[in-house]
Each structure stands twice: as C-alpha cells, then as structure tokens.
Write a protein that binds this DNA or RNA. Structure first.
Lengths: 340, 340
DNA sequence: TTGAAAGCGGTACCAA
DNA sequence: TTGGTACCGCTTTCAA
C-alpha cells in the first residue's frame, strides 16, 4: 500500500500535523524536525494522497475539458496546449468527449461536476445555453472555448468567427471568384459566425449566395470529412457551378476537395477551396489547402491561463472574453490569378 | 454549495446512513423511505461527491492515460476509443502527455499515482522498464499499449510490430523494389520491432540494407514529420538511390514524401513509400499514402476492456498480452507494377 | 514549536 | 429496518 503521513509520523515519533506542516512548508517547524521529516519522506518515497487533500481543502487540482471530438486535430491541439500549461502548475486534466452529442455532453458535464473540478473548459455542442444551467449553478469556474453563447455569462476564448468568414470569403473574391458557395457547419456559434462573415463579405461586394449555395451539413454523417464530401456533391449538381467554396473547417474542405477531384474538376482552376483551422498536415494534401488559421495553440494556452486565474481568485471573477484574430494562410487550393 | 447527504437526511429526518443505502440500492430499506429519499434527491438534484467516495472505498473510478503526443492521430484515436468504452462504465479519464520525454513521463506517472487511479494505460516513451518501477510498486493495474517492455510484467495491447515491418517490406518487394530503405523511429519497442521485421523480410529474399539505408531519426526534430523529411534528405544524398522506403509511421512518411516531391522525383515511379498507422486523412494526401494499419481503434477498445477487467478482479490478475494483426492498406504511393 | 481534536463527504460494520 | 460509530488521509484551528 501507499505510504501515508501516519507512517512517517510513527517512524519519527512526531504527530501527523507536524508532517503535514513540513510538507506544505509551514514556518513554525524547527529546522531539525523538518530535515528529519523530509529525509524520511524521501526514503519512503512519500506522495501525498491528493484525493484526501482535495476533500478537505475543496481544491482538487483537476481541470475538466470537454470537446466534441478528440480526433479532430483542432481539438487535439487544444487539449495539448491546455495540458501543457496546467501541468506546470500541478494540475491534472480530465478529458471527456461529447461526440458532438448534446445529450452525451450533458451527462459528461454532470459526471465531471461530481468530481469537484476546480474549473471546466468546454467547447460545447449545445445549441443553447440551457443545457449548461447546472454548470452555472455549480459555480465552478467555466471557460467556453471555440463556441460561445450570447446569453451565458461565462468566459470565452476563441477567434472572431465573423472575421473568419469575412477573411476567407474576401480572399476568394480577391483571387477572382464570383460564384462563391459555403459549406456550413452544425448548429453552433462557430458555424453561425462564419456564415455571417461569408454573407457580409459577399454583400460588401454587391454579391449574394445563389440558390443552393449554402448546403447544410447532412445530419448522420459521422464526421466532417464525409459531410464535406456530401455537401460538395450537392454543389456539383448545381448550374451554374460555384467557382469558389469556403468550408467551415479543414476536414470538410478535404472531403469537398476529394469530391471535386473525383468529379474530374481541377483545384483551384475550376473551383478554389478554402477551409478553416489550418490543420498541420494541410500542406501535404493532394492539393495543399488554403485555410484560415484558428490559432488552436493560442486558444488552448489562453484558456488554460484564464482557468488558472479564475481558480486562484477568491471571489467569482468577472467573465472575460478573449477574441483572437484569425490569420489567412494561402496554399495551392486558392493560388490563381484574379480574373481581369 | 453542492447538496450533500447530510442535507437530504436532515430534510427528511432520517440518518445519513439511510440516505447512503438508498443511493446504493441496499435492500434493507423500506420502500416508503426509499421513495422519500429518492424524491428528495431528485428535487435537490443530488450528485454524490465522488472524491469523498473514492477516499473511503479506495476506488476512484478514474483511469489514467499517458501518451507521447496527443496531436498524433494514432494516439488521438486511441484516447477516443478508450474514453468511449470507459464512459459507459462510469469511469473518467485523466490524460497526460509525455511529449516523448521520458523524464516528463516519469513525473506525470507520479502525479497520476498520487490521485489513486484505478488503472493506468500508458504508451511509454521510456527506453527501459526501469522508469516504470514505481508504477509497478504501486500495484496499480497497468496496461502498456503500442510500446512494450520484455522485462516488465504488465499487460500489453498492440500490434505485432515485427509483422508490421515484414508486411511493409514484403509489399515493397512485391511491387518490384530492390533497394529498400527504412526510416526508423525513436528508441522504443515499436521502432525496434518494425526494424527487425524489415531486416527479416529483406533477408528472406536474399537482400540486405545498403550502407546508409537506415537513417536514424534526428534528435531534436520536434515531430515525426520533420524527422521524416530530414531522414529522407539524407537518403537522397546516397548513390544508388533507394527505390522504396518504409517509414516507421505515417507522419514520417508524409515528411519523406514531401522531401521526395520537392526534390523533383516521382512517387511511386522513382521511389515508392509506405508508412504505418493508416491515419484517416492518408487518402487525401498529395500522393495517397500506402500504410500498415495499426488498428488504433481496436487497440483503444481492447485496452479499455482489459483495464475494466483488471479493475474488477479482486486479486492481481495475471498480465495478459493482446497482439493484434496489422493490415496492409495499398494506395497510390506504392501502386506500380512489379519489375520484370 | 508541537500536537489534540474536529471535520471534509462519504461508506462499513454492527448493535438497537 | 434503521442509525451510531469509526474511519478513509489529510488540513485547519487552537491550546499546550
């Protein structure tokens, strides 16, 4: 069994309290005693039981992270960034995946709350903040990432998604596209924002989406790539064909690109494609993919730092919003000259 | 604050013990009392404090997972699979990333042990089992995945890496390659096994690696892709050039492919490439990548099931080995006719 | 400088 | 059927 304070105390003929104080560097312990205790701890390889400590202090040093899909590189990078920052401060990370299912997410949140987390970081899949009510009631510091809710008073870290949509669409316009479609994402703020940005950019240039140019993600497709492929198939039925497509994320863009190439069309000559997320293998694809960088590493880092701040502060700190600026990354899938 | 048993007991004029028994479906509670308690629990939305429960029962319902790199799709899929199986049984998953650093991994293991996990699943980055000594001493059920140690009596789930190496190399031979190089991985069992398989397959056909044909991964490269690129650059300096390369994983293969294409050579006409892992975007690459499927989903699932079994069994169950058979997936990067 | 006692939120055992 | 008591491993308070 594991070594306990009791064991050390017994061995040294001191009390448990004394051992506890040494462990936490209390000043009211004589140097001699301190040394003896430290010595014995080292010998026995003592590790304090964090569960017990959590119970009495109310601080678990555990942070929860809920993401829709771990395999999506964006969320994997996020998790990595968060984990790296927290590790340095002695925190552990409990990970839960919602599989893009609001119901499942709800259950996972409850389970996590039962573990008395010190903070929860979540890219929620809910379409309204209603499902997060219990989370708010628990008063656990909470940080939304990537996807936000207007009516939910929590901190948020993410990119400005309207800017994302504008940036991508403006870029397609700049390279000469005139019939620009948008493969949109599921019912979350990210997708809404990007769609809004797309509309605004078009409007600014006196354009608007042609009928059928905004195919919705098919429900039931198990991943973004399949959704992108299906949505692109729909677009390829249209007349006139789009000459540029802005996809709500990179996996969808990969699916769309495959659909285009399989149909015998060329990228970017016939149809230019831009995605979002800038996944790290984007440069190695059949056609290297232009993308709007979502700053996943920065989001993870900022979210973790914000979590640390919220956990340290005694009183409930005011929610804070961190909006990062997206960045355009141009690769072959949009590399062509502007039409005259 | 959160609702406690004490609150419910007080409200109903019963004892805490009674409440506790209802919660755990003890039979020695009258139906009437049971209903009243359940009723009140629902009203107050009671959630048992898992930390407290863990302290007294010695079961935390937490499983730890340590991987070298979350962003690597193989490990992301693994984590997803494990999490899915455990979720159904009420377990949570604490995730730690070792960043391929044995020292860091050592620290993470210690921290996890302090949380009294019920089991630990680990793709270890240690080059010997020595760093895992404390883990064994703790008697926490432990499951090695992907990478194993001969001299460490723990369960293992993974593919047969010698088979992986043989399969890849045999395939290159079958399509007509005669000068086959191998870009090898870091100092872990996976890499050793694949290298061994490569040698055996060559030997079986009366071949052997030419000098310089097994470039070592450059230390300091921050990821497999960069390693693959650098190693391929070394190979491209050689005379004669290899006409087939087996890479220890897919990211390395992607790096290698980029190096080849950037040098103006063709895949697979000049050099055929095969990787390992079968990452899910492999089909969308510049040249769709042939690969040996490592069964990441199956590994995750099996590891989680094995963990469940070990946790349920009272006495320390004997370590069990699960060796999965790899599968060859042929794509364009090795699609060419055998030489006459 | 040290430690006895109380308690964190539960569960186990046994007596009422 | 119900509940008192002890206890899990640690921290906090306060008296010695």
């Amino acid at each position: 069994m594991a070594v306990r304070m009791k064991d050390i105390a017994r061995d040294l003929g001191v009390s448990v309290v004394t051992v506890s104080k040494v462990l936490r560097n209390h000043s009211d312990i004589s140097e001699a005693t301190r040394q003896r205790v430290l010595q014995r701890m080292k010998e026995l390889n003592y590790q304090p039981n964090l569960t017990a400590r959590a119970l009495v202090t109310g601080r678990s040093y555990i942070v929860g992270l809920v993401v829709p899909d771990l395999v999506h590189p964006f969320f994997a990078q996020l998790a990595k960034g968060i984990s790296a920052v927290l590790r340095g401060q002695g925190y552990s990370l409990i990970l839960a995946s919602s599989e893009e299912d609001p119901e499942l997410e709800f259950e996972e949140i409850n389970r996590l709350l039962a573990r008395s987390l010190d903070a929860l970081i979540i890219a929620s899949t809910q379409s309204s903040a209603e499902g997060l009510r219990r989370l708010r009631e628990s008063e656990t510091p909470c940080i939304l990432i990537d996807r936000m809710f207007e009516d939910f008073p929590a901190s948020f870290v993410g990119v400005d998604d309207v800017r994302v949509g504008e940036m991508a669409t403006e870029h397609l316009i700049a390279i000469g596209c005139r019939r620009i479609a948008h493969i949109r994402g599921p019912q979350v703020s990210t997708a809404f924002g990007r769609l809004e940005g797309y509309r605004r950019a078009l409007a600014r240039h006196g354009m608007e989406p042609l009928p059928g140019y905004i195919p919705a993600a098919t429900v039931g497709d198990d991943n973004s790539e399949a959704r992108g492929w299906n949505a692109m198939r729909q677009l390829l039925e249209l007349d006139p064909l789009p000459d540029g497509v802005f996809c709500y994320n990179d996996p969808a863009a990969m699916g769309a690109m495959n659909a285009i190439l399989d149909a015998g069309l060329r990228i970017p000559e016939d149809i230019a494609i831009i995605g979002c997320g800038n996944v790290h293998y984007g440069a190695s694809l059949r056609v290297p993919l232009s993308s709007i960088d979502q700053q996943s590493a920065a989001i993870g880092e900022q979210a973790a730092k914000l979590a640390l701040k919220l956990m340290e502060s005694k009183r409930a700190a005011r929610p804070k919003q961190v909006l990062l600026e997206p960045r355009l990354v141009v690769r072959a899938s949009t590399q062509r000259w502007a039409a005259p």
